[in-house]
Design a binder for these strands. Structure first.
Lengths: 326, 326
DNA sequence: TTGAAAGCGCTAACAA
DNA sequence: TTGTTAGCGCTTTCAA
């Protein structure tokens, strides 16, 4: 049978209060402490988190809601989240919401049930109603109507940088390719930034904007590309879309960076120490994770008000753009 | 303030026992049930999992210990685990152990602390001492000395299949390339299977076996490849190693499948709906996840004895082997 | 079929 | 600095 605090107390010949104090590191005489510690070791005692949580109402657990963990962006994000949380002695629960508002709601309920202390969520569905500003919630890449905390990369800036880099590399015919979600979404600013910068620099842009869920993506890409054969500089809403565009281009016999140049967005890598899949605007995923944890724990622990953090992005050259010599 | 069972009971005009019974679906008169349900809705009540866990000693949570979630094999595995667990109303905690036995131990302790009901672990370090057969633990890809449950793909068979497929495709000079861990490890059977089949078919095999942690992998590969210029069929311990070999080959101006053919192991895909990275022996990751959950919950819920499951693998052709016409 | 009441293992307030 | 004790919100006897 598992040892309880009472067992430790009686073996050590002290009260349960003292045992509790030793464990929580408050005022205890050295000799008492030693006796208790000896008893703890003797009985191989570890405190029951459930009983503790019942009193303190804290679980030291945070839930992450994402569309799917089976995606390098989210798995990298989850990796750094867990690392950061672990340092603060917190645990990480994973929820693959797959765009299901029910499942997102279920996890949000867990805060009320005190199964988790707070939530970090990358959610693209419409769950405003469930996310009241009273629960500790940090959103990634998304504004809610309520004053919810969020952490996001500077998507607008990313779009601007993409335009600059393509133009610097002598692209004459620019294109933007991406999907568009029915829900308000930070990623849309990537397009805005790109267009804005092109306008400033007096460049023309063709675009293919596909409503989500996207139906038969390859055909749509093939069609767009063959209808616009002179395109030589492409910015895609994210790296995965970039990969699809590259494949479509291949089908037309075109290769980057010789025949065209392309920049994605996200900065995805398959795994640590692996390369970027294409030239891309990198989101500072590790920093986003750290800032998310910090923001969330500030709310959980100190009831801080909601905060909004926008983090910088940068261009990372890989194999799909020409190297500038200078 | 959060509503408690007591609040519901007094609003419904019944005792807390009845509320509990309604929630747990046991013998209650219909009229009572209705009153209670109404009160629950009225107060937006949800049971506190902590209090419940304290009594029942169950958390409906399972922990997954892996080296890192930032790896497509593990993130796919975690994806299917979460999906399966979710159907059974269980939650999934993630632990990136990064090969740290301390962190693995910490999570194993969580079973004792009743923070989780059981553990599914892919662990390559030496933690036998902590994993007693008394705690609900399902190991992936690894034998422990104690009679611990495990689920694994048929690595030996995979190695055999790889040999067959390369030979079928007219490879004459075979090679095996992989790392080797100081801890007993299922993945070693991949090599054994490959060698065994080559022996049966009277084929010679060169091999590069590097002790882990591997120091300066690219140089070792370059050296091996330039010293063995006639190799035309390669089997690597896993897909990532395969990718590294492909890069090394590229540095020597060789391209698959024209100049050589290569088969990896794991069946990694970046994300759902994406392609395999190279021709490979596919582990049935989804099924491994389902079987792991089933095995674990049988132990947790029904105290079943440990089970050992070996699941089949299969060859999946992709761009790095020649297509057989028949 | 029910309500009352006894704990589950812990923390924290209180009194000593 | 301590031991004692009252709950935290729930489940589960036990009587009624």
């Amino acid at each position: 049978m598992k040892a309880t605090m009472k067992d430790v107390a009686s073996l050590a010949g002290v009260g349960v209060g003292s045992v509790s104090r030793v464990i929580n590191g408050v005022n205890v005489k050295e000799t008492t402490k030693e006796k208790v510690l000896a008893a703890i070791k003797e009985l191989d005692y570890t405190p029951d988190e459930y009983a503790r949580g019942l009193k303190t109402n804290r679980t030291n657990t945070v839930a992450l809601i994402i569309p799917t963990i089976w995606h390098p962006f989210f798995s990298e994000f989850a990796y750094y989240l867990e690392e950061t949380l672990s340092q603060r002695n917190y645990k990480l629960l994973i929820c693959n919401a797959d765009g299901s508002p029910e499942k997102e709601k279920e996890y949000i309920e867990m805060v009320k049930q005190s199964k988790v202390d707070g939530i970090i969520g990358v959610t693209y569905s419409d769950i405003d109603k469930f996310v009241s500003s009273k629960i500790p919630f940090v959103s990634i890449d998304r504004h809610f109507s309520e004053p919810i905390s969020y952490v996001t990369a500077d998507n607008f800036l990313g779009g601007q940088i993409a335009a600059q880099e393509l133009i610097k590399r002598d692209c004459k015919e620019l294109a933007y390719i991406g999907g568009i979600s029915p829900y308000p979404n930070e990623t849309n600013n990537r397009k805005e930034g790109f267009f804005s910068e092109c306008r400033n620099l007096n460049m023309n842009v063709t675009s293919l904007v596909m409503p989500e869920p996207i139906d038969d993506l390859p055909s749509q890409l093939d069609k767009f590309i063959s209808e616009n054969p002179n395109i030589d500089g492409i910015f895609t809403i994210n790296d995965f879309m970039g990969l699809d565009v590259i494949k479509s281009m291949e089908r037309q016999g075109k290769k980057a960076p010789e025949d065209y140049q392309i920049i994605g967005f996200d900065g995805i890598r398959i795994s640590e120490n692996k390369e970027y899949l294409l030239s891309t605007i990198v989101q500072p995923i590790e920093e986003m994770a750290r800032v998310s944890v910090e923001t969330l724990l500030n709310i959980v622990l100190f009831q801080e008000k909601s905060e909004r953090k926008v983090l910088p992005v940068y261009f990372k050259e890989s194999a799909t753009t020409k190297t500038l010599d200078n």
